[in-house]
């Protein structure tokens, strides 16, 4: 049987999560956790620690250096925030694709990355936006770049007795553009078969974040100066940089289709990212 525990502060939550006599799981929106528990709760972990009422939980905050996304911030919150959509179009587009209106009202960004599905929609965007993950434990706090956060399917560097408290995004270099696209089996409420975020940074770097084509979301660099408007020239470049992708065949798609689609979406999102830099400049 599951015990529900409503934590009132980060330290309080960490204490319960640190107990060794019982298995404890953090709860935010519950859109992954509760689905995983199923509709019969007998096989569930011992304690579910609800983090939604933390007195010291952080909100969505815009700072000089960027944006700080606290653990209770939902996809709907991200979509409603004008700074997020101006500075981080890829993240806003990814947040807007998650589930449905009802899901986005509950699903948090932190929950999305902590669940660490290879198909997690916000991960590719967070990768190209250079996000940092703040992790708290009884011993204190550490900060991990998102590119090191995921270690395998449903596994992160955040240990059992730790908590992710926030995701921080650096303020983009002026002239940066980004975009996100995903492929699904149907238009409404689906998990990505393949997802790609692209950023064309103001300093010339070009990056791709890839979802559902490897055990973890991947970050790859596209050589600076690549002409993103010439598809014929771009495709061989993409073939090279996308070689790190190791898509599998499963019930959602065949590996070869995923491989072809990651290339297709990469070309499209790069183009869209480039167009969005032009929009910001105009």
């Amino acid at each position: 049987m599951v015990t529900y525990y409503k934590a009132h502060a980060v330290a309080d939550a960490l204490e319960v999560l640190g107990r060794t006599d019982v298995e404890a799981k953090a709860l935010l929106g519950g859109t992954d956790l509760l689905v995983g528990l199923g509709d019969r709760l007998d096989s569930a972990p011992g304690v579910v620690v609800d983090l939604k009422g933390l007195a010291d939980g952080e909100p969505l905050a815009v700072t000089e250096s960027g944006v700080r996304i606290g653990l209770t911030v939902t996809m709907a919150d991200l979509l409603a925030d004008p700074t997020v959509s101006t500075w981080y179009p890829a993240l806003a587009q990814a947040a807007g694709e998650v589930g449905s209106v009802a899901i986005r009202n509950r699903a948090t960004l932190v929950g999305n990355i902590c669940n660490a599905s290879p198909a997690c929609d916000t991960a590719p965007a967070l990768l190209v936006h250079g996000a940092q993950v703040r992790i708290a434990s009884a011993a204190g706090e550490r900060v991990v770049p998102i590119s090191e956060f995921f270690v395998g399917p449903r596994a992160t560097t955040c240990a059992r007795d730790e908590l992710v408290t926030a995701v921080e995004l650096p303020r983009p270099v002026p002239g940066t553009g980004s975009a996100f696209q995903r492929l699904t089996r149907r238009w409404g409420v689906d998990l990505a078969t393949v997802s790609v975020a692209a950023a064309v940074h103001g300093d010339g770097r070009i990056q791709l974040g890839l979802g559902a084509v490897a055990p973890t979301p991947l970050l790859v660099d596209v050589p600076a100066g690549t002409d993103l408007t010439d598809r014929a020239a771009l495709d061989p470049v993409l073939d090279e940089v996308l070689a790190v992708a190791t898509p599998i065949s499963d019930i959602r798609a065949g590996a070869d289709y995923r491989a072809a689609m990651v290339r297709e979406l990469a070309a499209r999102t790069l183009r869209a990212a480039l167009d969005s830099t032009r929009r910001t400049q105009a």
């Binding site: 449905s100 089996r185 149907r186 238009w187 409404g188 409420v189 689906d190 998990l191 019930i251 959602r252």
Partner: peptide, 16 residues
């Protein structure tokens, strides 16, 4: 049966 769940047995939504 591999896709008994609502995640992998797809039926149309209003967007479809």
């Amino acid at each position: 049966l591999l896709n008994a769940s609502a995640i992998d047995y797809r039926v149309p939504t209003y967007k479809d």
